[in-house]
Design a protein around this nucleic acid. Structure first.
Length: 648
DNA sequence: ATACATACC
DNA sequence: CACTGGTATGTAT
């Protein structure tokens, strides 16, 4: 390790380039160098995702990587990582071979297509909004520290088998979130472990959100400790600059919650997210909303900093000569063919520094799946496996009740003792959520798996429902126009996605099921055992790292008059919640409601092609809400509506 | 539609 | 000591 001390620290290992002559896969199996090279990428991979994260700057990464490597090697986990690394290496050599083949062709067309796309994307650039990404610093650790101030200078971590997070003292030793506890202990023998306490974190997160709502009542919770805000209006109202506003907001958050946050301020959410990492912890960074400044910023930005580029994609990109976002331009003629359309478009928007400027409360996003999984001691006894499946089904039922939905597809996930993962799914004949149904429909696929690999030993089992059908009462009522919708929504999250048709089709799919499900929904609600209250509040801790399900706090001003504003639907004339997206959805519903009613009456309960309401697109343009918010309608261009991954 | 891989926190 | 859990999304088939 002495040899690779400083030069290889932060960069991914080089891929073997294919030799000029034979473009096929051979190069990566050359014996002498490859054992070493293979380990380099494996070690890099074992370093984990937080390499690029804050707090690791002063750490000797090669030393850390060596310790992790030594601690891990020989384990089944390690073997699996090794195998995965080999697969990736092969995949990369395949990509390189393809690139070599492309090089022999005339790529003028691809080059022109890329330039056209760039020009088109450029038209959608919106520099008028001030978007902020806020990120609490080592959030769980910071919350724990409030109760245990004596830990301020000692390295500690939250979480058991795997570190959920750790404080900055521990990070100096190379510890990081996602790391196995025993590995962290090797890096830092004094490391103190604290158990997770989600109720505490959620309570503190709610305090932080109280403050955020003052600056943008429609802020978007991206996770328990992250949020996006659009402060354009706030800046205009107060006559303040965005940096000044965020300084003030961060000060206020710290005063009221004793939590420090870092912030990025930029013209769109993608840039803001990158910027919030620049001055962590307890700092902020402004990227001026100026095209040249943005292009220069992106030019030198390592691709790995992009939300959506992980270890694998980073390696693939590096292999074709793309290390920074600026490098994307030089390779633009290859990217579509090498990585596919979505990745290609994603990369182009990254090169240009484009991103979404829309920010909306998380509860306005539609949930796509609900699932649960757990790890346990290796198990192969079929009886025990069935017990485990039964238990998993019961856990999932609880989660489904909390989420107020049923699923039409059930996915069984299984991890073998070797860490290989399998999933198998079934479409259920009806939407399900009861443990009995979940168990009965998943049991046959478990049995089939057992048959496929006799005596399989499992270390994890999980069940997940997809193709969800909401059983929320407000939606049902809104659907039939009985009452305007307010807070909750199971609506789709399409925005200005450029191609409304795709979404429309999907929605029609949902609608087909609604008449039937609507009644079920009531039944589910009617069995009110008070759980729907206790569930959401504090009943059982909804242990979640992901998106928050809580609604945004109501701004104090409005609290006295909770439902102060309504917009009248132009079709049914009923008042609707003053929310641009819900309003548009309501119009969608109104336009096809009659068709749905017909369908229900015919009791052609299943497939109702009649419900395919051909909704006019025109109304989406000058929507009332956009004026209300003082935010310009975003370009119709391919600006994505994504939540996490940005390939869309 | 199904299976698998990747990514994020 | 002994490598998580929940959700979303992309690609290949």
């Amino acid at each position: 390790m002495a040899t690779n001390a400083s030069s290889t620290e932060d960069v991914p290992p080089e891929e073997a380039q294919p030799t000029k002559q034979n473009g096929e896969a051979n190069q990566n199996n050359k014996p002498a160098k490859d054992t070493n090279a293979g380990h380099e990428s494996l070690k890099y991979s074992l370093l984990g995702p937080s390499l690029t994260k804050a707090g690791q700057d002063s750490v000797d990464q090669s030393k850390v990587s060596e310790i992790i490597y030594e601690a891990s090697k020989g384990s089944k986990f390690f073997s699996r990582e090794e195998a995965k690394d080999k697969i990736l290496t092969a995949k990369i050599s395949h990509i390189l071979a393809k690139k070599a083949r492309l090089d022999k062709l005339d790529l003028t067309r691809d080059l022109r297509a890329a330039d056209t796309l760039i020009a088109q994307l450029e038209l959608s650039r919106d520099l008028t909004q001030h978007i902020v990404h806020l990120d609490c610093d080592a959030f769980y650790a910071a919350v724990e520290l409030l109760d245990r101030p004596e830990l301020a200078d000692v390295p500690f971590a939250v979480g058991g088998g795997v570190l959920t997070t750790c404080n900055y003292v521990a990070r100096k030793f190379g510890c990081r979130s996602g790391m196995a506890g025993f590995v962290a202990k090797k890096l830092c023998p004094q490391l103190v472990f604290l158990p997770l306490n989600f109720e505490k974190y959620n309570a503190k997160a709610a305090e932080v959100r109280e403050v955020l709502a003052e600056y943008d009542p429609r802020f978007e919770s991206a996770s328990i400790d992250e949020a996006y805000l659009n402060i354009t209006e706030y800046c205009a109202e107060k006559g303040m600059g965005p940096a000044e506003v965020v300084e003030q907001m961060r000060r206020e958050i710290h005063e009221k919650t004793k939590i420090t946050v870092s912030a990025g301020i930029a013209a769109n959410s993608k840039l803001a997210k990158i910027c919030s990492n620049m001055n962590k912890p307890n700092g902020q960074f402004v990227l001026p909303s100026d095209r040249t400044a943005i292009m220069e910023f992106m030019r030198d930005l390592p691709c790995r900093k992009l939300n959506g580029v992980g270890r694998v994609f980073e390696r693939e990109l590096a292999a074709v000569g793309v290390k920074t976002c600026g490098d994307i331009y030089g390779q633009r003629q290859y990217l579509n063919q090498l990585f596919g359309e979505k990745a290609y478009e994603f990369l182009m928007t990254c090169y240009l520094g484009l991103g979404r400027t829309s920010v909306q409360p998380a509860e306005e996003y539609e949930r796509k799946s609900v699932g649960t999984e757990s790890t346990f001691k290796d198990m192969s006894d079929p009886v025990q496996l069935r017990e485990k499946l039964r238990w998993t089904a019961e856990e999932l039922e609880k989660d489904m009740r909390r989420a107020e939905c049923k699923g039409r597809t059930l996915v069984l996930k299984v991890k073998l003792h070797t860490y290989e993962v399998f999933t198998r799914q079934v479409v259920t004949p009806k939407a399900v959520y009861l443990a009995d149904d979940l168990y009965n429909y998943s049991l046959p696929i478990l049995a089939k798996l057992e048959q496929e690999r006799p005596g399989m030993k499992l270390r994890l089992m999980g069940l997940r429902c997809t193709h969800l059908v909401s059983t929320k009462k407000p939606d049902t009522l809104a659907f039939f126009g009985l009452k305007p919708r307010r807070t909750e929504s199971a609506g789709s999250a399409d925005e200005q996605s450029g191609s409304p048709h795709a979404k429309r089709v999907q929605r029609d799919g949902e609608w087909e099921q609604w008449p039937e499900e609507a009644l079920d929904g009531y039944e589910l609600e009617m069995d009110k055992d008070g759980t729907s209250e206790t569930r959401e509040q504090s009943g059982s801790p909804f242990r979640r790292h992901g998106k928050e399900v809580l609604s945004n706090p109501t701004p104090k001003k409005a609290q006295s008059v909770p439902e102060e504003e309504w917009w009248d639907c132009p079709i049914c004339s009923r008042p609707q919640a003053a929310n641009e997206r819900l309003f548009n959805e309501h119009i969608d519903l109104c336009l096809s409601r009659q068709a749905i009613r017909d369908t229900v009456q015919q009791e052609a309960a299943l497939s109702s092609t009649g419900s395919t309401g051909t909704t006019p697109e025109s109304r989406r343009s000058g929507s009332v809400g956009e004026k209300k918010r003082g935010r310009p309608a975003h370009g119709r261009g391919p600006d994505p509506r994504q939540k996490k991954l940005c390939f869309g």
